[in-house]
Simulated scan of single mutants.
Amino acid sequence: MQPFIFKEILSITMILFAIIDILGAIPVVIQLRQRAGHIESEKASIAVLVLMVVFLLIGDKILDIIGLDVASFAIAGSLVIFFIAMEMILGINLFKSEDLGSTASIVPLAFPLIAGAGTMTTLLSLKSQYQTQNILVAIVINTLFVYLVLKNVGWLEKLLGKTGINILRKAFGVILLAIAIKLFRSNTHL
């Protein structure tokens, strides 16, 4: 096993940071927090870490066993993201509040928003280009950043105010909608 390579770790960390886009997900996190009452930062971060590590190590095998390809997985994630984006843009509730409860920290926050189909497919492609131990370090670094953002979302909500949050929610809803459509289009052969 080769030693850790700082340059690889930095590259992978930046790639994952861009794909996870936790800063862009702040309006979604605030919306989920308002509806669920509480987001468990630790639980969500651990779920993100476990999902990414497991998928990195055996994701392609798991998908093969259940007869799914990465494209189908990505399309399913894109649909969930699509409906969340529609909620943000239109100001409607498609997901019932009572269904969220403590599970909001896992679904839809940890998966598919943070460790979603885009992140998972990126991990599979990174695995073919970089050493696994360097990818694992980058996953841990990104998970720590996710934790810090989730832990401080209340402070960010106060900083932005109600008007700022509404503006961000609509703007990021459109961005999230575009991401969902791009993810869907790039994984369908229409």
Rank of each mutant, 00 (worst) to 15 (best):
I106M: 07
P27Q: 13
I106R: 06
I62Q: 07
L113Y: 05
I89Q: 00
E42W: 08
L23M: 14
Q31A: 12
K96C: 11
L68V: 04
K96F: 13
A18Q: 12
F4S: 10
G24E: 02
S72A: 14
S45I: 12
R33Q: 11
F95P: 00
V80W: 12
A74N: 04
G101V: 01
A115Q: 04
I81S: 09
L32Y: 05
I75C: 06
T119E: 03
D69Q: 07
T13S: 15
L100D: 08
I19F: 08
G67H: 07
I39G: 01
M86S: 10
V70K: 00
S45F: 08
V53Y: 07
I89T: 01
G101C: 04
I81Y: 04
F4L: 15
F55L: 03
E98F: 13
I114G: 11
A71M: 03
L51I: 15
K61R: 10
A36F: 13
A85K: 03
T122P: 15
T103L: 14
V29D: 07
V48H: 00
Q31W: 06
V28E: 07
A71D: 13
Q31G: 06
F6I: 12
A115W: 01
V29C: 13
F17Q: 02
I30D: 01
I106A: 12
F83H: 02
A18M: 12
V107W: 01
F4D: 05
A104E: 00
H38W: 08
L94Y: 09
E42Y: 13
F111L: 11
K43I: 05
K7W: 09
K96S: 15
M88I: 06
I5W: 04
L124G: 02
I81C: 03
L113H: 02
V80F: 08
I84R: 02
A47Y: 01
K61Y: 12
S78W: 01
E98P: 15
G91Q: 08
L32C: 10
E87R: 05
T121M: 14
L51M: 14
P27R: 09
V53D: 11
K7S: 15
G118W: 01
S45Y: 09
D64F: 07
E8F: 09
P3I: 14
L100C: 10
A76Q: 03
K61D: 13
E8K: 06
L10I: 14
I75E: 02
T119P: 04
Q2C: 06
L10P: 00
M88N: 01
A85H: 09
A36S: 15
A117L: 03
D64K: 12
S102Q: 11
T13F: 13
R33A: 12
L123I: 08
K96V: 09
K96Y: 04
I12H: 09
H38S: 10
S102F: 08
R35P: 00
N93T: 14
D64C: 00
F111G: 05
D60E: 11
G118P: 06
L32S: 04
I12P: 15
F73T: 01
V48G: 02
L32Q: 06
Q31V: 07
I89P: 08
T119M: 05
L57P: 13
G118D: 09
A115G: 09
S41A: 15
I75V: 15
Q31N: 09
S11G: 01
A71V: 01
R33I: 03
V107S: 05
L57T: 10
K43Y: 09
A110Y: 11
